[in-house]
Simulated scan of single mutants.
Amino acid sequence: MAEHLEKGTEAEQLAKEWLEGKGYEFVEANYRHKHAEIDLILVHRGILVFVEVKFRSGTGYGYAEEFVDYRKRQLIIRAADHYIHEKDWHRDIRFDIVGVYRDRNGRIAFKHFEDAFY
């Protein structure tokens, strides 16, 4: 597996565990619909939360939230719409971004953007 894919998979697992520690209930990972993928789907306080996870080793090239551009948001929204209809979900939803940052010493930090877009 390519190194960037391994880092992405690791970041998604770290974000999942971190969110579960904050009271989120894991539902599904890597949900795909056509050309879109939703990294994590969780439920928090009755809200279905679609999470885009971005890994960064430093911020020299920008912050995680800056890498979820308009096109990426539209793909996630379309996939979420399909998921909502597939599961017959009738309650609130939200789109979050979780940045997973690893510093030079290997320490992990998270930055959570709730209700990041729609």
Rank of each mutant, 00 (worst) to 15 (best):
G21E: 07
K87D: 00
G99F: 01
E6A: 14
K72V: 05
H90C: 02
V53N: 00
D69S: 11
K87W: 09
A36C: 10
L42E: 08
W89D: 00
E17Q: 09
E20F: 07
E37K: 06
F26Y: 12
G99N: 00
I77N: 04
L48S: 00
R78T: 11
H33T: 07
N30W: 04
V27A: 02
D88P: 06
K16R: 15
E6R: 14
D88Y: 10
E17D: 10
V27D: 00
G58S: 03
A36S: 13
E86N: 09
R78M: 11
T9Y: 15
I38S: 07
I97F: 08
K16M: 09
A109K: 12
V49S: 04
G8H: 10
D88K: 14
R73D: 03
R104K: 12
K54P: 00
R45G: 07
E12A: 14
E17W: 03
E25W: 13
A64F: 03
I76V: 11
S57R: 15
H82F: 11
D115Q: 07
E28W: 08
Y101Q: 04
L42S: 10
W18I: 05
F117L: 09
R32L: 06
A80P: 01
G46Y: 13
W18K: 10
I93V: 13
K111A: 05
V27N: 01
E3K: 12
H82D: 09
Y24H: 05
I108S: 02
R107H: 02
R56P: 04
K87N: 00
V43I: 15
E65C: 09
H4D: 12
V27Q: 10
A64M: 00
D115Y: 11
Y118G: 02
R71L: 10
A109F: 13
E65A: 11
R78I: 03
H90E: 12
E10K: 10
F110V: 02
L14P: 02
H4E: 13
E86D: 13
D69N: 15
N30Y: 03
Y101A: 00
D96A: 03
T9S: 15
A29F: 04
G46F: 12
E17C: 07
K72I: 06
V43H: 11
F110D: 03
G106M: 01
E52W: 04
I108E: 02
E52Q: 10
H4R: 13
K111L: 07
H85E: 15
G21S: 09
Y24L: 02
D92G: 02
D103E: 05
A116V: 13
Y70K: 14
H85F: 11
E12D: 12
G60P: 07
A15Q: 03
G46D: 13
D69F: 11
L5T: 13
V53A: 02
E37N: 06
F55R: 00
D88H: 11
R102Q: 08
K34V: 09
E52T: 06
